Computed example of a mutant assay.
Amino acid sequence: MPSHETDGGNEPERTDDGVNDAERVRGGAGDEHRGGGVESGSRERGPDEAFCRECGTVIDADARYCPDCGASQTGGPRASPGSTIDRLVEDLLEGGNPFVAAVFSALVPGLGQLYNRELEKGLVVFVASVLAVFSTAILIGFLLYPAVWLFAIYDAYTVADRQSEERDEAERGEPSHGTR
């Protein structure tokens, strides 16, 4: 419990940091060092700034500790999305995962191509699979649909694999070897 200092007069009690409760509520004197003032939490974040994980104050993006509350900005229970399930979901949804692309194409031919961000190819494969289904009425579809389906799976997997390799090379700063 903080020690209270009084001078015996009518002045409000002050805590160890020299701020009385009325000043703290108003965000007044002495509160600036903790980010309790009106200005610290209300300004917009700039391009090289981030919000503190504890108090929400705008701080330098590379800061290891918040200058207002002293909270660590690395590791701990509020770790960055790079070490949580958020990163896994982000990786799965951004494209480039060969397994996910193949599964999507196995479910619906053309969906894996859309996952790989190949809109035109995805639409062509989807339309081809629909036409192949309708051509089963004249028995050609029994051979045509499996061919379209297998092509969609193979193409989605190989394109996603290539995109993944290109992204990994770009992250490492290696020159691209071009397409295969």
Rank of each mutant, 00 (worst) to 15 (best):
L143S: 09
P2R: 06
S105P: 10
R24E: 11
D68H: 14
F151P: 01
G122A: 02
Y65Q: 04
S3A: 10
S80R: 04
D16H: 07
P81T: 13
N10R: 06
Q73L: 08
D17L: 10
C66Q: 02
A156S: 13
Q73D: 07
M1V: 11
E171K: 08
G41F: 09
N97R: 06
D168E: 12
G70T: 06
A71S: 13
A29C: 00
Y157P: 01
R167M: 05
L107G: 15
T57F: 03
L93T: 14
R64K: 09
K121Y: 02
E118T: 05
R45G: 03
E94K: 14
L150P: 03
S40F: 08
G141W: 05
V89F: 12
D86P: 04
Y154R: 00
S40Y: 08
R180G: 10
I140L: 15
R167N: 11
E120N: 11
A71Y: 07
C66L: 06
S72L: 15
N97D: 15
L93Q: 06
F104M: 03
V89R: 05
D168Y: 11
W149K: 00
P47E: 14
H177M: 12
E23C: 05
D155C: 00
L93W: 07
E13G: 14
P12S: 12
F151M: 01
N116Q: 00
D60M: 06
F126W: 05
V25I: 15
P47N: 09
G96P: 09
E23D: 15
S105L: 02
G75W: 12
F134H: 06
D31T: 15
Y154S: 02
N20M: 06
E174H: 13
P67I: 15
I138E: 09
R87M: 14
G112P: 09
P146I: 04
D7K: 07
C66D: 04
